[in-house]
């Protein structure tokens, strides 16, 4: 329980992971066929069996890290290395089978643009639902609604059902809501970044402003240029394990070497 004590004593640590492992049960893959073994052999994840001989995928193994206020952490690694799973674990969605996750502060996950989006509702109503999902009170939402609406730059479209929106418009709507209050912890998956260059620039300015509010930003991405611009620390995941963590430049450089060597 030393971690708990550390967390309360050390005010700078916002999220701490201690020996966290996340294991997914795979109920469909019940068979122990040789074919499956061979097929899965080369994949990035670790497929194994638990005590009951059930097929399990070890998505994260023994992850320990501490994220402190002001950190802009980039998660990098190949597909299936566990980046999204780690984001979800940080968000509290997956409770680890081993180890523990401690965090303080309001977490705003931005993992899926479509979270809580009801295609038939108009933009304003979707902003309301989304903001509620992120934990804003009804009064807070109504107060911030004009500001959110302005940031989306969607204008009259906000009165239209969101099924008429393009992916980029949807992103603007969601990004505006997710970032309408100063989230203490913003978790983001790169896959949602589909906006045009101008919007990304705007988003970048917004994210920059969070960091100044001494909050935490974690981004899972393959875009090494974006990562270098947005983040100051890197964490390289390989098959669910931490391969390297440290200053962003060093981690990106090592990762580049590794990728080009293959």
């Amino acid at each position: 329980m030393s971690t708990l004590a550390n967390l309360s004593r050390n005010d700078e640590t916002v999220i701490r992971l201690d020996g966290v492992s996340v294991v997914f049960p795979v109920y469909q893959a019940g068979s122990r066929s040789l074919k499956k073994r061979i097929l899965f052999h080369g994949s990035r994840g670790n497929i194994g069996r638990d005590a009951n001989d059930k097929v399990v995928v070890a998505a994260l193994s023994d992850i320990s890290l501490a994220i402190t206020a002001g950190d802009r952490l980039a998660l990098i690694g190949a597909n299936g290395a566990g980046k999204t799973t780690l984001l979800r674990t940080l968000a509290g969605i997956f409770e680890p089978v081993e180890g523990e996750v401690k965090s303080r502060g309001r977490i705003s996950p931005l993992l899926d643009i479509n979270l809580g989006i009801d295609a038939e509702l108009n933009g304003y109503d979707n902003i309301r639902v989304r903001a509620m999902l992120l934990g804003l009170s009804t009064a807070e939402i109504e107060r911030r609604l004009p500001e959110i609406a302005e940031f989306t730059e969607l204008g009259d479209y906000l009165d239209m059902p969101v099924r008429t929106y393009s992916a980029g418009m949807m992103l603007r709507l969601c990004f505006a809501v997710a970032t309408c209050f100063e989230p203490e912890i913003l978790l983001m998956d790169e896959s949602i970044l589909t906006g045009d260059a101008r919007f990304i620039a705007k988003a970048e300015a917004r994210i920059q402003s969070f960091i100044e509010e001494a909050s935490v930003f974690v981004l899972a991405s393959h875009n090494l240029e974006l990562i270098k611009r947005w983040c100051n620390k890197g964490l390289w995941l390989d098959r669910g394990r931490i391969r390297m963590q440290g200053p962003i430049e060093a981690v990106v450089e090592e990762y580049r070497k590794f990728v080009s060597a293959r």
Partner: peptide, 9 residues
């Protein structure tokens, strides 16, 4: 699922 996998509630 679309809620549970993307936000902790």
């Amino acid at each position: 699922e679309s809620y549970i996998r993307h936000i902790k509630l």
